[in-house]
Design a protein around this nucleic acid. Structure first.
Length: 794
DNA sequence: GAGTTTGAAACT
DNA sequence: CAGTTTCAAACTC
């Protein structure tokens, strides 16, 4: 049922996207291709989530199902080549997330159908969907990575190739995957499919891939029984992962779902790490992925969902947690640290995996460094901080790296190339006086972009503390005093965190929200389109004296422009001044030619900000991907860690239920995806959506008007107006806590209507309406009835 | 490095 | 919800 619903929506999505492109064509722009690609980019991770959902997670009760039978999980045994998979994670993560050449699926499938491609009917549908979704225009651009490389480098979809920077890497990757394919066999469907999806037709390595499959045959034959067990285990693993994902969704946490019982084999651990990456491939971008160009180097930064859940730097620890412990604790928010259970080898691998994940989220360049097993613990940190310099929120949770780094330190015999150096460094840190630390923290946090605090009175248990606010434990290099933000005080941390979340569920959400396409593109003098400003502060600043020109200003600090959400006075933010009234903006909407006069934010971003922070539509779709994680599918059914205030609240704000921010304007696919299903409510989603409300000043007016223009039958008359008022008011001081729909709501018939309505609303073109609004409404009505028909068919 | 300024967070 | 206080970062000298 879900599958069908998804498919229906996909079809509509596709239609919409095509329509989208046509719109652009009408506008005479040259971005047609970019938008055309959107279908590809968006659908793939979506399908992944669909598959996971269909295979392993029904919206209800999935957790219970997957929490059983730990024995099977234990059956996973060691196997050769498991270690070498780790670099693969990079490719898998990145490629699976971002590219799926159309031809790759049949290609690999034909060649190694038995070995490589086991598809459930639903998966087949999904694949069909992929092929369906990739229309002819898209295919032209998806002839395979190699061809893509030869294309315009500025065409940013092709930048995927940075992820497979060299043929050597790719072949290595192929060979490694081939080994694993045999070992994991059918049980690892997701993995295989993801692997299969990565093999481009045009790639010569397909041959080597096949060869490797043959060569690796003996290995797998020799252990068929083992493989069977492993298959079960792996499947259980995957299912468990999905189940955990269900939970993690609710928490917005990144609890790697493959939690290891104690004393498992290296292989199992590696598998887990691997799957962690799999998981991350879908989970990682859930907050947003920002893409930035730094000095010509394309960087994708995927920030980790901090959200309301897991303390970020506990992820690495969680991988080695006792499963029972995890089961009991995993919804609590923070994961408990079980450092004593981390075996050196595991932690080291894990550290590498984590590093890989982050690095892979960053750039292909970084990936290359890791792939060649030349990662340097220090280097990693430096690189990442370098890459993620755009804004704090776009930075990786540095403490992750730090944690990994520390774990490497813990095992001098294995891992880092600079182990001695690392130890020295750690000792140096430990022996440092608080003052020195403070000084050092002040300097290093500036240069390395890591969260390091100097708290003295807050015990690092308030949002004053940067570490705490960022969802990371304090680290040695922090200069805090009486710090309780440490693993050993996890209970305290958890409690405090819950307390804060009960006040403001978004307290731990990232302050800067990447916002792909919600604002209209600007037209420059030369007719080219510039992309809309891509990120905004979630709540906006409140600066009075700094004129948003100092780092006191959170917007400025995050290197984003101020928005109407800001209450600043005399805003002079060089990354984008607070815009005029929403009416002025609405005027721009009506008359796009004014946009060029008003292209302040985007232009400023490119000029004054020094670095090019312009997000091409193509890369913004990666941000869209971030919102298309499987997370969204499960949230409705399970909301264990969402703070009580949200979880238990049966109310659904109008802002959430109704089209809200994305009506009659851009936002397109990600909104569509997030909102068309009543299951799609997650804190992150809401956060994003709410951010859309707050951040998209252009939208505000349209939003209100849209609602007014909405057919009566679509208006939600049952929900109070308070929430929407809070969400939409540009002057509001506090973030209004998101209200999450209860299950009853979702199961009710009215929720179906709401869902329909939402979908309809979200399916409105992304661009400023070229026709009178009445016409738009016709379109809405038409689409609504289409959707209703589709749903009733199912 | 000490002191000041600033604005977010917390509190009332 | 508005005003006040507390806090830590940013900034200045």
């Amino acid at each position: 049922m879900f599958c069908k619903l998804h498919m229906t929506s996909f079809c509509q999505l596709k239609d919409y996207l095509v329509f989208d492109s046509d719109k652009i064509d009408e506008a005479g722009s040259d971005v047609h291709g970019k938008c055309g690609n959107r279908a590809n980019v968006i659908l793939i991770p979506c399908l992944e989530s669909l598959e996971k959902e269909v295979q392993s997670c029904s919206p209800s009760g999935c957790v219970d199902e997957y929490l059983t039978d730990p024995v099977e999980v234990e059956d996973c045994t060691n196997s050769a080549g498991s270690h070498v998979r780790q670099p693969n994670n990079l490719n898998r993560l990145l490629q699976f997330s971002y590219t799926v050449p159309k031809e790759t699926i049949p290609e690999v499938n034909d060649g190694n159908s038995e070995d490589c491609m086991i598809m459930l009917p639903d998966q087949a549908k999904s694949t069909d969907l992929i092929e369906t979704a990739v229309d002819e225009r898209d295919t032209e651009r998806f002839d395979g990575p190699l061809e893509l490389t030869s294309k315009n480098v500025n065409d940013q979809v092709e930048s995927n190739l940075l992820l497979v920077s060299t043929t050597q890497h790719y072949e290595q990757y192929v060979a490694q995957i081939s080994r694993n394919v045999k070992l994991q066999n059918a049980g690892d469907q997701l993995y295989q499919q993801s692997s299969n999806c990565q093999f481009p037709k045009s790639f010569q390595s397909v041959e080597s891939y096949k060869d490797c499959l043959e060569n690796s045959g003996s290995a797998s034959e020799g252990s068929s029984k083992e493989a069977t067990l492993q298959q079960r285990g792996t499947r259980r693993h995957l299912q468990f992962e999905a189940a955990m994902t269900c939970k993690s969704i609710e928490e917005e946490s990144l609890i790697p779902s493959h939690v290891e019982p104690r004393g498992v084999s290296n292989h199992r651990h590696t598998m887990s790490s691997d799957q962690a990456i799999d998981s991350w491939a879908s989970l990682c971008p859930s907050e947003f992925i920002s893409s930035t160009q730094h000095g010509g180097t394309l960087a994708i930064s995927s920030s980790i969902p901090s959200g309301t859940g897991l303390h970020r730097n506990s992820i690495s620890r969680s991988l080695s947690m006792d499963s029972d412990r995890v089961l009991s604790k995993k919804f609590d928010g923070y994961m408990s640290s079980q450092e004593e259970k981390i075996t050196p080898g595991h932690s080291n691998n894990l550290a590498k995996s984590l590093n890989s994940c982050f690095i892979s989220s960053a750039t292909g360049e970084l990936q290359a460094r890791v792939d060649s097993n030349q990662q340097d613990d220090l280097g990693v940190e430096e690189i990442s901080s370098d890459v993620f310099q755009s804004s704090d929120s776009m930075k990786p949770p540095c403490n992750y790296l730090h944690a990994a780094f520390s774990e490497q330190q813990a095992d001098p015999s294995e891992g880092g190339m600079h182990t001695t150096e690392s130890i020295d460094r750690a000792e140096e840190l430990n022996q440092m006086s608080p003052k020195k630390k403070r000084k050092r923290a002040a300097l290093s946090s500036e240069s390395e972009g890591c969260k390091r605090c100097n708290c003295r009175r807050s015990k690092c248990l308030k949002l004053y503390c940067e570490c705490f606010a960022a969802g990371v434990y304090c680290v040695d290099s922090c200069a805090c005093e009486s710090c309780y933000n440490k693993p050993e005080y996890e209970d305290t941390v958890l409690d405090t965190r819950q307390q804060i979340e009960s006040r403001n569920p978004l307290a731990f959400a990232p302050k800067i929200v990447k916002h792909a396409t919600d604002s209209p593109a600007n037209v420059l003098d030369d007719g080219n389109w510039t992309t809309p400003t891509s990120a905004r502060h979630k709540r906006g600043c409140n600066c009075k004296k700094s004129k948003c020109l100092k780092k006191y200003c959170e917007c400025y600090q995050a290197k984003v422009g101020c928005s109407d959400a800001c209450r600043c006075e005399g805003c002079n933010n060089s990354f984008g001044k607070k815009a005029g009234s929403m009416y002025q903006r609405a005027e721009r909407w009506k008359n796009p030619s004014h946009c060029k006069l008003d292209a302040t934010e985007t232009d400023i971003e490119r000029t004054e900000a020094g670095t090019v922070t312009q997000f091409s539509p193509r890369w913004e779709e990666f941000a869209d991907i971030s919102n298309l994680t499987p997370l969204s599918h499960y949230s409705g059914a399970l909301a264990p860690s969402v703070s009580p205030s949200t979880r238990d609240c049966p109310k659904v704000s109008k802002a959430q239920l109704h089209p809200g921010s994305s009506s009659l304007k851009s936002s397109s696919a990600n909104h569509l995806r997030w909102h068309y299903s009543p299951m799609n409510f997650t804190p992150q989603l809401i956060e994003n959506k709410e951010a859309h409300h707050e951040l998209d000043s252009e939208n505000a007016f349209t939003e209100i008007r849209s609602y007014d223009d909405m057919p009566e039958m679509l208006k939600n008359t049952s929900t109070p107006t308070k929430e929407i008022k809070a969400c939409c008011s540009p002057n509001k001081k506090r973030v209004s806590p998101p209200q999450f729909p209860s299950q009853e709501l979702m199961s009710s018939s009215s929720s179906g209507m709401q869902s329909v309505r939402k979908f309809v609303w979200q399916t409105v073109p992304s661009f400023p309406p070229l026709t009178p609004y009445s016409k738009s409404n016709e379109g809405i009505t038409q689409m609504e009835s289409d959707l209703k028909r589709n749903i009733s068919d199912h």
